[in-house]
């Protein structure tokens, strides 16, 4: 069983960052049509990993309960990226945070579709609203940014997880991602 699309990987890997005592998590998704590259980068300021923990995180059979937060997620994304001529990069500093980057060659037949990224981002945002999640999407040279803190300023004491807000937010992110693609093409 594998993840169906890139958005599902973002959801899965993003969850690791949210559970790592982070106060800020940044998610960058970059589509470059000229070089046919799709990449995502997730950076957190959480507890980070030692060299050994990083090695274990990439081993699908590593199941020690104490670091169970990795599960199969990292081996999955590593395999998915490498299978389609992409790259996988994991950097971490104990006590400082972790950065994970996966790059895909979108012209490769094995490249998974991008999927519903807006949906994944909203799910991550509502998972823990005390963490500032910053999402930046770039399409060639244009970009769009949204963050938990910016939304909270408008929402005051209403939670992002209120169903009506979640639905609005997913549409808001989707519309803006589509807008960048259209502006590029025109």
């Amino acid at each position: 069983m594998m993840m169906q699309d890139i958005a599902m990987h973002v959801l899965d890997i993003g969850m690791n960052s949210l559970k790592a005592d982070s106060s800020e998590v940044k998610i960058f998704i970059n589509e470059d049509t000229n070089s046919s590259r799709i990449s995502f980068t997730i950076i957190d300021d959480g507890r980070g990993m030692s060299e050994e923990e990083m090695k274990n995180a990439q081993d699908p059979f590593y199941t020690s309960r104490t670091t169970r937060r990795f599960g199969l997620g990292i081996p999955f994304i590593k395999a998915a990226a490498e299978m389609c001529g992409g790259k996988f990069l994991l950097q971490s500093l104990k006590g400082k945070g972790t950065e994970l980057k996966a790059e895909f060659d979108s012209s490769n037949i094995d490249c998974p579709p991008l999927g519903n990224v807006a949906d994944a981002i909203v799910t991550l945002m509502v998972f823990d609203e005390t963490i500032n999640l910053i999402y930046q999407y770039s399409y060639n040279d244009t970009e769009f940014i949204v963050s938990t803190n910016e939304l909270k300023n408008e929402l005051e004491d209403v939670a992002i997880s209120e169903p009506a807000i979640q639905i609005w937010l997913t549409e808001y992110i989707n519309e803006n991602m589509e807008r960048l693609k259209k502006e590029e093409q025109s």
Binding site: E150, L151, E156, A164, I165, E175
Partner: peptide, 19 residues
């Protein structure tokens, strides 16, 4: 096209709905 300002309206609706 949605804008962040729309959230204010939604927020007020949500406030009135949240029991």
């Amino acid at each position: 096209m949605k804008s962040i300002a729309d959230l204010k309206k939604l927020r007020d609706q949500a406030k009135s709905m949240v029991e």
